[in-house]
Amino acid sequence: MASDWSDPRPMSPHLQVWRWHATMASSILHRATGIANYIGAVAISVWIILLAFGAEGWVAFLFEGWMAWVTRFGLIVLTYCISYHWLNGLRHLVWDFGKGYDPAGSNLRSYLIIIAAVIPTALLWLNLGA
């Protein structure tokens, strides 16, 4: 955290002085969607535990009335986050083999993955008739 920084020497350029670009956005999105997936995995695990012990009544309000739409919206966002993290994670595995570092291609793949993650999300939810 910045508040801990006591070194008086100049600091290397950081987030606030960088112009936004595709590869930066896709890197930050990878962390952000990872954290969202963490929260989603905790929620699904807790739900499985409640189901096993017949205590799902505690969270029944999540699926009733207008709350059902909030829950559905949250799950659609989670589906996008899983799709994005899955696609960009594949890219990370390719990087591990030392491939895919060219600047122009990196920019293109960043845009492609951000957009392509909509496809599995849409396929799943259109199948559910949401």
Binding site: S45, I48, I49, L51, A52, F53
Partner: peptide, 8 residues
């Protein structure tokens, strides 16, 4: 806990 719940 979730693995226990699943097995149950």
């Amino acid at each position: 806990i979730t693995a226990f719940a699943l097995l149950k």
